[in-house]
């Protein structure tokens, strides 16, 4: 047992915070362990356990990559379901992923929504109040692969007509592509269009 500490003078504590050698060693350790070891080990193990997800959840058809299940694409033809407006480059360009960053008070947003709303109303033959908000708003990433089930529902008639399918057949394809559970119910536009192409080109 040591003797009582009440009267012992304070032991010598370090007031220098180390030397240049310490700081450089710490820097080297930080980069080696945090920058190389941690991400390398994590990336390799993650890639080995979940190879499909680790490589971008790619959809391959006949040996060709046709997209990623996580990323939307631009569609404009009558026979396709159409996704949300995109502010990512020329549309759904992952290298230029971006939201519009337009504020609700910005006249530019109002103008864009007016144009989109009119185009959708004309294309689908619906009234403005029937158009769900997701179809006239740009997503945060500009890559959103989903639309709301209501957003798909108003497109069913047009797609069915263009493909010579019954509305019922298209509707069942929509419900097959609808994800629910945790989060908002949503329809993956790319997967839906691919499923329709596979069923009836």
């Amino acid at each position: 047992m040591t003797t009582s500490n009440e009267s012992t003078p304070t032991p010598a504590f370090d007031s220098s915070g180390g030397s240049v050698r310490t700081w450089l060693t710490f820097t080297a350790l930080t980069f080696a362990l945090g920058g190389l070891l941690y991400p390398t080990v994590t990336t390799l193990i993650g890639g080995a356990l979940f190879p499909a997800q680790a490589n971008g959840s790619l959809i391959v058809q006949n040996g060709k990559v046709v997209g990623s299940a996580l990323i939307g694409q631009t569609f404009s033809a009558e026979r396709y379901f159409i996704g949300r407006p995109s502010a990512a480059g020329s549309g759904y360009d992952p290298r230029a992923a971006s939201g519009s960053n337009l504020a609700g008070s910005n006249p530019a947003l109002r103008k864009r929504v007016q144009a989109d709303s009119a185009a959708i109303a004309g294309r689908e033959g619906v009234q403005a109040p029937q158009i769900p908000a997701d179809l006239v708003t740009a997503s945060g990433s500009g890559l959103d692969p989903h639309i709301s089930p209501q957003g798909a529902a108003i497109q069913v008639e047009r797609v069915a007509k263009a493909r010579n399918l019954s509305a019922e057949q298209v509707r069942s394809a929509v419900s097959a592509a609808t994800e629910s559970g945790l989060g908002q119910p949503r329809v993956n536009v790319l997967e839906l269009n691919l499923a329709l192409d596979a069923a009836k080109p």
């Binding site: 008070s105 908000a133 179809l135 006239v136 708003t137 989060g183 949503r186």
Partner: peptide, 26 residues
């Protein structure tokens, strides 16, 4: 609702700059 959408789309949460899979609450 986003004020820019007034009269142009159905009322609902503000989805400009948001992803459908999360919605406005999340």
């Amino acid at each position: 609702s986003n004020p820019a959408l007034a009269g142009l789309a159905a009322a609902g949460g503000n989805l400009e700059g948001k992803e459908v899979r999360f919605g406005s609450d999340a």
